[in-house]
């Protein structure tokens, strides 16, 4: 581990996820994850990044026992992960996966959202209330009777998110949930995540390659070769070229431009917009 990250604002919050010495692998000689130690406080938005095959997806699947850890201890929302607590832990964690089609369980939007709620054995009124609340929240209330074949990828991902939010998890994990979406739908999903973060009720874990998604998060866990290579705020990741290269990532365009300018002896901060850049570089309007 070359960098350690102390979270000052959220430091007071109790950890909702703790991993201590966690490993995973089918072959002990070649573990997929090795000795992972990390603790995530309530309400934090964490991006998990790294090259393909670094174990990002495996890591989050260990949390709710979709895959069995081979060593170490996992604690989620106060439950230590073992056979008896799997049910409780799964109730605390909602997951959205990459392929919008393969996680649409029901034959209609309504059915898909009810799938999890019926499993919680909720009474009718409670189901009805949550169904209404979350479909309105995610803007899919007009699609209730639609089949997945009639929905766009972005709409399907919103249904997936509504399905898990309706189960009221404290932790929401998105496993490359936006990577198969077009730009517009990606922006929409980001907007929803931002709202969720503002609400403060969710701890968000986002597996992603997208610079803008990483930038929006509080903290970045970079995985490489099955262990944590860095645990830093996004700004620190984007300033570290070696780390970016190692994780197969690129910085957002304004960061790249600022760095290229700095390399040419022009000192600028990362601009928030193109206008800001122009105003900093040329404070007076020279144009004739």
């Amino acid at each position: 581990m070359n960098q350690s990250y102390k979270d000052t604002e959220a430091g007071e919050e109790p950890a909702v996820i703790t991993l201590a010495g966690v490993s995973f692998g089918y072959d002990p000689e070649h573990p997929i994850l090795h000795d992972i130690n990390v603790s995530i406080p309530q309400g934090q938005w964490v991006s998990i990044v790294g090259p393909n095959g670094c174990g990002k997806s495996t890591l989050v699947k260990l949390l709710n026992a979709l895959l069995p850890k081979s060593a170490g201890e996992i604690t989620v929302c106060g439950h230590t992960l073992q056979e008896e607590t799997i049910g409780d832990i799964r109730q605390c964690i909602g997951m959205v996966f990459q392929n919008p089609d393969n996680q649409f369980i029901g034959q209609t939007v309504e059915e898909d959202i009810l799938f999890g709620l019926e499993g919680l054995c909720l009474p009718y009124e409670e189901m009805k209330q949550r169904l209404d609340l979350y479909t309105v929240k995610l803007g899919i209330d007009h699609l209730l009777s639609k089949h997945p074949g009639e929905l766009s990828g972005g709409q399907k991902q919103r249904v997936a998110l509504a399905s898990i939010l309706a189960m009221k998890p404290g932790i929401v994990i998105l496993d490359e949930a936006s990577s198969m979406l077009d730009e517009g739908s990606r922006d929409e999903l980001m907007g929803i995540l931002r709202d969720m973060q503002a609400e403060g009720a969710y701890t968000i874990l986002l597996i992603t390659h997208d610079p803008d998604e990483i930038l929006a998060s509080d903290r970045v866990l970079a995985l490489h070769g099955g262990s944590i290579a860095a645990d830093v705020p996004p700004a620190q990741l984007f300033r570290n070229e070696d780390l970016l290269e190692k994780c197969h990532l690129r910085e957002p365009y304004p960061w790249r431009l600022a760095r290229e300018l700095q390399n040419r002896g022009i000192t600028v901060d990362v601009p928030a917009s193109e206008k800001e850049l122009i105003d900093t570089l040329w404070p007076y309007n020279f144009s004739k």
Binding site: R90, L114, E118, C121, A160, I164
Partner: peptide
């Protein structure tokens, strides 16, 4: 993928369910 998605939503075969 579907199995992951169902299990992540707490599905267990033969567990009691309520009905909407």
């Amino acid at each position: 993928d579907l199995v992951y998605s169902m299990e992540a939503r707490g599905f267990r075969m033969d567990a009691p369910r309520s009905r909407y």
